[in-house]
Design a protein around this nucleic acid. Sequence first.
DNA 1: GTGGAAATTGTTAGCGCTAACAATCTGGCC
DNA 2: GGCCAGATTGTTAGCGCTAACAATTTCCAC
Lengths: 343, 343
Amino acid sequence: METETVGSEARQPVMADVAKLAGVSHQTVSRVLNDAPHVRPDTRERVLAAIRELDYRPNSAARALVTRRSQTLGVVSFESTLYGPASMLDGIERAARNAGYFVSVASLRGLDSRSLQEAVDRLRDQGVEGVVVIAPQTSAVSAVGKVSSSVPLVAVGSGTRASIPMVSVDNRSGAEAATRHLLDLGHRTVHHLAGPPGWLESQDRREGWQRTLRAAHAWVQPVEIGDWTARSGYEAGQRIARLPDVTAVFCANDHMALGLLRALHEAGRSVPGDISVVGFDDIPEAAYFIPPLTTVRQDFGELGRRALELLVAELGGSASPVTQVQIAPELVLRRSAAPARRG
Amino acid sequence: METETVGSEARQPVMADVAKLAGVSHQTVSRVLNDAPHVRPDTRERVLAAIRELDYRPNSAARALVTRRSQTLGVVSFESTLYGPASMLDGIERAARNAGYFVSVASLRGLDSRSLQEAVDRLRDQGVEGVVVIAPQTSAVSAVGKVSSSVPLVAVGSGTRASIPMVSVDNRSGAEAATRHLLDLGHRTVHHLAGPPGWLESQDRREGWQRTLRAAHAWVQPVEIGDWTARSGYEAGQRIARLPDVTAVFCANDHMALGLLRALHEAGRSVPGDISVVGFDDIPEAAYFIPPLTTVRQDFGELGRRALELLVAELGGSASPVTQVQIAPELVLRRSAAPARRG
DNA sequence: GTGGAAATTGTTAGCGCTAACAATCTGGCC
DNA sequence: GGCCAGATTGTTAGCGCTAACAATTTCCAC
């Protein structure tokens, strides 16, 4: 046991300790650790045994100092308590580990570009080799473009049209699928409960909805606007319930749809009997709303994974200057959307 | 601008570059950076100017190497896409930043103690100074006790009775409040939809429920068991709906309550008319369930914050060997629980 | 057996920073 | 003016590791 811990208190063993115990030079220890060639099997064994005996662990700071690589990636996130961002973070972390990286997080204080710069700087100060920004707001995205990037940046979950590599769900086609589904069910037109202005998701989903209505020569109703929360969905729902001829609503996310469902319920409008509702996201609870919510599924974990792959590829040098990855979402049919009643 | 970047490509400036530009020694630069005393104001100004001009940023690896402090804390999380864990992580990150630390995350692969050890080791390898474990499972907690801890560990969100410092919600008293509320409303007894075995939360909430019933001399019904998901709540709800004399159910979390509500709805049992329901957690959506859910609120962000404070205190040397912090949850009254009908 | 290439190991020099100590400068006092 | 304490600055030595090169050994073909 206490081979080395002689007089005073035990100090963390360093490479030299391992070398001495194994009877080799510290460089040989380093070779074993880094799987360098030209180490005789029995030497390797001896070194490994010494490592085990001392419970030696390499000092990452020393290694980072000399290799100039921290093996760490940064993630900037905002509203990371929401299901989407949390899932992306999770996906990123798993992918990073598989790629041999650690991940460090920095949450945004606010949505201005100063906060973003601050968060990115924090991560840079820590020595991260690259950064993934989970920031779906247009403001954030434009800020990302401005950020001083001595390290590669990748954005995830936002819409398109950024100046940096980005992985996102194809919000437009998702919204189109939702809207078309409702039209196909015989609804004359579809109302829209949009997300807050300034978010790419809001814009893209709204555009997809609008485009589909236009293509079908359906009437484009004025949109209601929420802020992604169930509360705002509820309030919008109260307004919508007062409109006489609404038969179908496409909500920009599931949380707002939840609030909407309750407002309609309270107003005595049955779903899907009187009004069909479709959401967006497919959060795990959506299948247990009353009624179960037809919605557009996006795989947040996959998004995170893909973003990380993109970043790692960029670090590896195989960098196309700007890469946009779009992931197609999928319409999930449940019971909240049904054929329109025969007028 | 390019004071130094002569021939080839620009290299990250180091302390010596700043020193040369400011006409001082690198040590003086270091003093300015670390707010050491005995630096003449004008010297400081000159150094600061040089730093700005070169956009110099200290190399954290070099600093960590010599100070033996990485300024980084680790967080181990499991199921970090759930609202609770995600909120705790968020709270931890914010508190860490305020305390001057970076945070690095490692998610658990599985729930066995090997995974936990693996995650903690990963963080240690990265040089973290301390670790917060978000792991509410008993298995994880017992594993935490076994983990080789060359760095301080703190657990958060779990129940009590661990061998390491821990911050948690007082699940028992929360469950007691919920159960007593239902009894006070005139229900003869309260059924319980418990969380999965092996989680401290499950056990503690169940105990709180049981104890309250006993104290009130109410009949203790056999529990239903779920796995925290809405799906399991739905399934349990179908079973409960078939029991003739159920008038009140206390669910171990809100997601299961959501599933339960739907099952009851489909079975034609009105809530709270026929059956009162109380949840646990107060997720943001709970207020928009049908009907709005009476539940026990726990402040996850606060939990994370407190855990981090505990860890930082320990790092600062003010360590009581084992510290248990309990945070009292709060009963939030909404419409899903109502007075029992007069028999 | 012997030369030489390949395999194996060791030695030396930093990476960029802070701690410890040495050197110099400043001001106030007699 | 000279002297000393304190303020201010500089010099030196690593932190623990890897890269580059040097030294030594091994293994074969001849």
